[in-house]
């Protein structure tokens, strides 16, 4: 196997760069670190998953199909996405133009004791996305590469997949907003308006 490029990306710097361009797009996070990272940049157009490992990409698909005029970003971890390999195929077959999936890939299960994931053993999530029919797919290792790939996340020519290889740096859990019903209702009220959200 070829020697792997070394990553210099910090997960919170990377997510910050992605969300700086979010505009009116909708964000779904996977559980764990990505949820906490996004919590430091809280926004009513963010839906946080705190459980249901493997759900993030498919929540994104349902949302993208329901809101074809809005860009939908899913940000999650490598462990979460490895649990949802079938979702690559389902999304690749469906080809929603307004869906982008970003995996913050530290090659570790950092919530459960830093055990290595299969991405540390050569499993290539961007390759899986490409083979599943995603319109664009890539892997970035530093901020310059990430910045260059950012426009494609918001171009509505998806589905787009991006693996951002990030360092193993951990941060404290920095979000206290974890009542699922409240998170759902806030998201719907903001997106649909009060009347439609509760009709």
């Amino acid at each position: 196997m070829a020697k792997k490029p070394k990553t210099s990306l910090d997960r919170r710097v990377a997510l910050g760069a992605i969300l700086a361009r979010r505009g009116d797009s909708l964000l779904v996070t996977g559980l764990g670190s990505t949820c906490y990272d996004a919590g430091t940049l809280d926004h009513p157009n963010t839906f946080y998953l705190w459980g249901g490992m493997g759900a993030a990409a498919m929540v994104g698909l349902g949302l993208a199909l329901a809101q074809p005029k809005r860009q939908v970003i899913v940000a999650t971890g490598d462990g979460e996405m490895l649990m949802a390999l079938g979702a690559f195929a389902t999304i690749g077959a469906q080809r929603p133009r307004n869906l982008a999936i970003v995996v913050m890939d530290n090659e570790l299960y950092s919530e459960t004791g830093m055990q290595p994931t299969h991405t540390s053993r050569g499993v290539d999530l961007a390759g899986i996305a490409k083979a599943s029919g995603f319109a664009r797919s890539g892997t970035v290792y530093n901020l310059k590469q990430l910045n260059a790939s950012l426009p494609s996340l918001y171009m509505s020519q998806g589905p787009v997949f991006l693996a951002a290889k990030v360092t193993s740096q951990r941060y404290p859990m920095s979000i206290r907003y974890r009542d699922g019903t409240a998170i759902k209702n806030r998201f719907r009220e903001n997106l649909l308006g009060f009347d439609k959200a509760y009709y």
């Binding site: 349902g62 993208a64 199909l65 719907r188």
Partner: peptide, 22 residues
């Protein structure tokens, strides 16, 4: 109509469907 690889995908997808107002 969305063909799934496994049923649990559908549970997650329909959560997103409702989030989006459908």
């Amino acid at each position: 109509a969305v063909s799934l690889t496994t049923e649990e995908e559908g549970v997650a997808m329909l959560a997103g469907t409702w989030l989006g107002g459908e």
